[in-house]
Write a protein that binds this DNA or RNA. Sequence first.
DNA 1: TGTACATCAGTGAACGCGCGTTCACTGATGTAC
DNA 2: TGTACATCAGTGAACGCGCGTTCACTGATGTAC
Lengths: 226, 226
Amino acid sequence: MAKGRYHHGDLRSALLDAAETLVRERGADDWSLREASARVGVSPSAAYHHFASRDALVRALSERTLAWLGKRLGQECERVAGQADDPQRRLIALGRGYVTWALDDPAMARLVLRGGATGPDSAISPHPHDVLSAELDRLAEAGGLPAFTRPGAEFVLWAAIHGLAVLLADGLVRIDDAAAVDAQTERVVRAALNGLARETSPAADRPAARSAHTERLARRATGEPH
Amino acid sequence: MAKGRYHHGDLRSALLDAAETLVRERGADDWSLREASARVGVSPSAAYHHFASRDALVRALSERTLAWLGKRLGQECERVAGQADDPQRRLIALGRGYVTWALDDPAMARLVLRGGATGPDSAISPHPHDVLSAELDRLAEAGGLPAFTRPGAEFVLWAAIHGLAVLLADGLVRIDDAAAVDAQTERVVRAALNGLARETSPAADRPAARSAHTERLARRATGEPH
DNA sequence: TGTACATCAGTGAACGCGCGTTCACTGATGTAC
DNA sequence: TGTACATCAGTGAACGCGCGTTCACTGATGTAC
């Protein structure tokens, strides 16, 4: 791993790192594959041994980040598992993880949450959407949510959390200190969960909404192309 | 207003229209000022008599669209005003207007909702955020929301609606038919409102969140610069 | 242990491209008298 | 009503730029014998 060698060692990761830094410095789109290569100290064409196109590099970065986020959200839930007399606590922690990430790393959040950046065969694991669904299952099993309200509930909660996250990341809403962000997140999550718990009839026989990630998994399972 | 004349008549609007079409055809960012000029049948430099830069054109388009959306949301609320035995109906209509717009015109929604695209002295009227706030005021006055939960409630509801809208516009969530979109929107709005109505203590003495639009108005009122 | 050789992961020059913006200009418009 | 002239809103050529991607190449690595 000495310097100045002809072969880099792990150029793929290095390019992803450089791209990530550029996204933070200049925004989700305002950088080039050439710049990322230059940062790593490599010619632009070298990148093409690792990524088919600039777009593929962006997609790979997006997938890496989504997987990282999924892992972190799971950890945030676990961290509050001890003092969890309140069954909603884990989901509040999840929401907090999502929102604070978007606020701390807004350019990357824009890149990732804008969507469409993940390929059909991406294996993001654990996917944030799955982590959220699992937590809602847990809440429902613990009796914190009527069973008939469970189907599709993840889209209600996801919308609320995602909305707050992107409103903050995009600067449409500003909240000054971190404590107030946490308070606002908790308010949003609690309102969504309590609102769901108050529902009087099932939304529909079949859930009508599907996440792009779930669809990909389903397609892979049935062996469908594309 | 004959064709072939040297002076265009309303080049400014024509450029905004062309840009809007390009956004729809090719995505929020994948078009140039030169293309918009060419569509209108005018040289690229002509645009600079109406916009200081490409960025200014984007900003103007964004502002025009936000004002249009604000107006439409207000109309949607009025449309259901007659049959409004349920005081939440107006806000459900508002949410439906927001979400269906984002789904029907996703590229424009991405351009506009991404934020940062409105200048400091923009006069967007009526601003969607103001329409939402007014509707919540109305609901609170009608007793549909405990008074102490009203401060900051717009950010809870906005997060939920905005979240669903951008999840759909960005393709992170898919819902096939329009009726299911409406049902999902209604579920999200009801959950948020019922969750808010169930709150037991005020969130804080002072609202911690502020929208960028509200901040601009406040700055203008106090005569602060920038 | 040494050599031949396939494979891998780089180089560097070149491609064609369209972009945003500036500049000196000119044709059209409208107002003052 | 006619003319002079300032202003407005266009033209078209040119600027410098950096981009994504391709291509023929070569240096380094590792495996087989």
